[in-house]
Design a protein around this nucleic acid. Structure first.
Lengths: 191, 191
DNA sequence: AAAGGATGTCTAGCGTTGCTAGAATGCCGG
DNA sequence: CCGGCATTCTAGCAACGCTAGACATCCTTT
């Protein structure tokens, strides 16, 4: 309980975060396949095994990056929704912000939705940032709509499909804007 | 040009197919992470390097499996669409068939849409089976609708998102039926 | 204040991966 | 029958995630 051990704990927490940001930067600049435990250890200027004193394995590191991504996504969506004001245009704004996030931060998006992670979704112990991001979609629908969760799930699914299929070249990346228009138009006009 | 060399060529083609089906079976029973070049070679009772005389690498093998998957998917969708008859219920039938395919053949679906492959989509040299599967969605909309490709892209995206998010537990797998209902209802009622 | 114990970090290495070079084997044409 | 070509195998490389055990460093206790 001495001051020294407090300092060590602080340093440890600092290094924990250092690993996460290093992994994220490496993934964003060179892609996730370049994020190996060796390169990551070299980057943070420690030996390989220290990674395993902070995380259970590589998946846990990816999960930590993904979690940070969900926080960021949630704030982006919230900002877009609040800037739109009315719930009508809000849906469009949130959807657009979502797709922008996916295209501008592909590595982060991969960690959140494609790579295997330890994160648990749609459950009691779902981390708050995940829930927060999802709730932004829910908030785009009227509170007295008892199907808004369902609507949000479908909207999210469609956006995710568009993001990932266009990113992998399975649908032409150009048409993203038109697809967004069509999707929002179809989803929005509901009783 | 002798009969012997013809036989060898025949055997070679046979072995080519053997590798593909072995990879597929292994993936379907134990998952793609169990499909290593060593296990695959053992399965076809040849040494490892023969795989590389047939395929450029592991990705090419996955691509071959994915291509077979697209053929199968195309016939499934076509069957569903033709059984429905009218273009109205056809959309729902095709969507349902798509989701069924994704859940019943997860390994195949992964090869087609998630794992890295050499397949090129939405291009001039897109393999016919890919185009055929996509066209089944297009055919669900009226021929004089000049946006039917766009509609098909969005529909496909939404289904893919639902399939992959529910498979990875990111949305509750139970609600799939309701989500399908909602999606079809929203997409279908268009001028 | 020195010994003992706990904590933390490193070097070294294990088993597995995708992939390949070079030896060995078998078949064809002259 | 024999040289040359094609095919297949054995053996191995570099890189991967991960871990055991040696070393060092600091804290506590007598």
């Amino acid at each position: 309980m001495s001051a020294i051990s407090e300092r060590r704990e602080r340093e440890r927490a600092h290094r924990h975060q250092l690993i996460i940001t290093a992994a994220r930067e490496l993934a964003e600049t060179e892609g996730w396949e370049a994020v190996t435990t060796r390169r990551l250890a070299e980057r943070v200027e420690y030996s390989q095994p220290v990674l395993y004193s902070h995380f259970n394995g590589k998946d846990a590191i990816v999960s930590a990056v993904a979690l940070a991504g969900f926080s960021e996504l949630a704030t982006q969506l919230r900002r877009a929704r609040q800037a739109a004001g009315e719930p009508g245009p809000a849906l469009r704004a949130v959807c657009r912000a979502y797709l922008r996030f996916a295209t501008e931060r592909p590595a982060l998006y991969q960690a959140m939705f494609i790579l295997p992670t330890d994160l648990t979704f749609a459950s009691a112990e779902t981390p708050p940032p995940l829930r927060a991001a999802f709730d932004e979609f829910v908030s785009c629908f009227h509170p007295d709509n008892d199907q808004r969760e369902l609507f949000a799930e479908v909207t999210w699914s469609a956006l995710h499909g568009m993001a990932v299929l266009s990113d992998s070249g399975r649908i032409p990346p150009d048409g993203q804007e038109q697809r967004l228009d069509f999707l929002v138009a179809q989803i929005a006009d509901t009783p």
